[in-house]
Computed example of a mutant assay.
Amino acid sequence: MSTAAIRKKDDMWFDILNIIILSLIALAVLYPLYFVVIASFSSPDKVNTGEVWLFPKGITFEGYERIFQDNRIWISYFNTIKYTLVGTFVNVSLTLMGAYALSRRDLAGRNVIMLFLLFTMFFSGGLIPTYLLVKKLGMLNTMWALILPKSVALFNLIVTRTFFQSTLPNELLEAAKMDGCSDFRFFFRMALPLSKPIIAVIALYYGVGHWNSYFDALIYLNKENAYPLQLILRNILIQSQLSAQMLGGNIDGLAAQQRIAELVKYGVIIVASAPLMIAYPLMQKYFVQGVMIGSVKG
């Protein structure tokens, strides 16, 4: 058997092994999500007995009805969309401007600035000083308390700076300046149009962070009509569980409340995750390009 034939056979077995391993990983990642989806409208009794594992059984939408009958859901959905859109816009804008400035070799003291920024990555003022600062600035019970304290993530700033350094050569800036292009015009007319992959990546990171965030709202917001979706869903889930516990003496009532609590639990996961699962495929092309930054040279 020739060397080329042996190599081809080895490559075939390598591909088969890769396919098997990646298929198992994909199954381990996708099946829990699939199970949550089918369990959210299956009978809790059948879920608890293990009958639901591949297809839904005893289909019921009572959990979703309980969730969407609560008017707080719609208010919190609007709040979360507002916080996510405004917050992501602020985050992406500041990150792009900061990363571009730090990527320029002619910025005086950029290494010192990066040193100070890296220091904040490992050390912070803590929750109480941050709360006192937010309160002193008058941002309590406003969306700015959820946005401005975390307006720039250092990891995203470093990744974006690396993208600018590897994508925008100095020769491009020099040529633009020879044609009379200012720094602001170069940034908005040339740097940003060439940065769609990294913009998609950091926008997705920031957007997911804002959408899933509830701790900051728990600390800084006291008005229920300003709560984001995650906090309202958390309260609904806790109320369902407490209702079941308060009916300890009534066996039938307890069983019914526990049944509803199980449906609500799975339904809450779907309601909270559905928008992100819909948005991700639309950004997947740019996301894949962006996360490969620096992996291929030449």
Rank of each mutant, 00 (worst) to 15 (best):
L115C: 04
V134Q: 02
I128F: 02
G50W: 10
I20E: 09
F41R: 02
A101H: 01
Q69A: 12
V47C: 05
W144F: 11
I113W: 13
R66I: 07
A108Q: 14
R66E: 10
S124K: 14
F78N: 08
P149L: 09
V112H: 13
V37R: 05
D10A: 15
L133N: 09
V47H: 04
F41E: 03
K82Q: 15
L140H: 06
A5R: 14
K136C: 10
I113A: 09
L102H: 06
W74A: 06
T84G: 01
L115E: 05
M12R: 15
F123Y: 14
I59R: 14
D45R: 12
Y64V: 04
K82I: 14
K136T: 12
I59V: 15
T84V: 02
Q69L: 08
K82A: 13
L96G: 03
K8M: 06
E62C: 00
P56G: 04
T88A: 06
K82E: 11
V134D: 00
V37T: 05
W13K: 09
A4D: 15
T142C: 12
I113Y: 07
A99P: 02
S103Y: 00
K57Q: 14
R72N: 10
G87M: 00
P32Q: 11
F122S: 09
R66M: 08
I128W: 10
G87A: 12
G138M: 08
M139F: 08
W13T: 09
L33E: 02
M114A: 12
F55S: 05
P44F: 04
N79S: 06
M143A: 14
F35K: 05
L146Y: 01
K9W: 04
G125T: 07
L96C: 07
V92M: 04
I75G: 08
F55T: 00
S93G: 06
S23H: 12
L118N: 08
D10P: 00
I67M: 03
W13R: 13
I6A: 13
I67D: 02
V47A: 04
W53Y: 03
K9E: 08
N18P: 02
E65W: 06
G87L: 11
R104P: 02
W53K: 04
V92A: 01
I21F: 08
L148H: 06
F61H: 09
L27K: 06
Y64P: 09
S40K: 01
I25N: 05
K8H: 04
W13D: 08
S124H: 15
I147L: 14
T60I: 01
S103W: 02
L137E: 09
F89G: 02
D106P: 01
L30P: 03
G138N: 03
I21T: 10
S124D: 15
A39D: 01
V37A: 03
N71T: 11
T80G: 03
F55D: 05
R105F: 06
L102R: 00
T130E: 13
Y34D: 05
L117H: 14
I67Y: 04
M12T: 12
K135F: 14
F35T: 03
F119G: 07
I38Q: 04
D15V: 13
L27W: 15
V37C: 10
F61S: 02
Y77K: 09
L33F: 15
S124P: 06
I75L: 14
K82H: 14
N111I: 11
D45F: 11
L127V: 13
R110P: 08
S42M: 00
A101R: 05
G98F: 11
L94Q: 12
V36H: 00
L118T: 11
F123T: 07
